[in-house]
Amino acid sequence: MFNESWRLAQGNEIIGKLYLSDVDQPWFMCTFEPAEGWETVRNLFEEQSEAMKTGDPERIGISMASIRSLGLRLLPLAGEGEVIPVMIHIMEGEAKFRA
């Protein structure tokens, strides 16, 4: 878990790369670099961001469940192992996750 950069993957498709910029436990704050696979999930993350802005707990829960159902994994750019994010948010070049 002490890697500082990961590929965000759904199955064999790479969604993007995350580069650790800060840790505010339990959150890992990162910059996000989209990859080709980003377009397949972008709308779900945009919906999550909009739901969070409204503060509607039901809408937030639904959007988080949609993202969780993607089966996303964080694969280190260097080294071995993988991290399964419990929660992940991506918005405007920034990402944060809990593992």
Score class of each variant (00 low, 15 high):
Leu18Ser: 00
Ile62Ala: 14
Val83Arg: 06
Glu13Tyr: 02
Ala65Ser: 15
Asn43Ile: 04
Met91His: 10
Leu74Thr: 03
Gly37Arg: 00
Glu94Phe: 14
Glu39Met: 10
Gln10Pro: 04
Thr40Glu: 04
Asn12Thr: 10
Trp27Ser: 12
Glu92Phe: 05
Leu72Met: 11
Ser21Glu: 12
Ala35Cys: 12
Glu94Lys: 14
Asn43Asp: 13
Asp24Pro: 00
Gly11Lys: 02
Ala95Cys: 07
Glu33Thr: 09
Gly71Asn: 08
Leu18Val: 00
Glu33His: 06
Ile84Asp: 05
Phe32Glu: 03
Gly55Pro: 00
Glu33Val: 12
Asp24Ser: 11
Met64Tyr: 14
Glu94Ile: 08
Ser49Arg: 04
Ala51Ser: 15
Ala78Leu: 11
Ser66Met: 13
Glu39Lys: 11
Ser5Arg: 03
Phe2Tyr: 06
Pro26Trp: 05
Ile14Thr: 04
Ser63Arg: 11
Met29Glu: 12
Ala65Tyr: 11
Ser49Met: 01
Met91Gly: 03
Asn12Tyr: 06
Glu4Ser: 04
Asp24Tyr: 02
Thr54Val: 07
Glu46Met: 13
Leu44Tyr: 02
Phe45Lys: 06
Phe97Gln: 03
Leu44Ala: 07
Trp6Phe: 09
Ala9Asp: 07
Thr31Ser: 11
Lys53Trp: 08
Val83Ser: 04
Met91Ala: 08
Ala51Cys: 13
Ile15Asn: 01
Gln25Ser: 02
Trp27Glu: 12
Glu80Asn: 05
Pro26Arg: 05
His89Lys: 10
Glu58Cys: 07
Met91Arg: 11
Glu58Gln: 15
Ala51Val: 13
Glu39Ser: 15
Ile15Phe: 03
Thr54Tyr: 12
Ala65Gln: 15
Glu82Val: 11
Gln25Gly: 01
Leu75Lys: 05
Val41Arg: 01
Ala78Glu: 09
Gly61Arg: 15
Gly16Thr: 05
Asp56Val: 15
Leu74Trp: 07
Phe32Ala: 00
Val41His: 00
Gly81Lys: 10
Ser49Glu: 01
Ile60Asp: 09
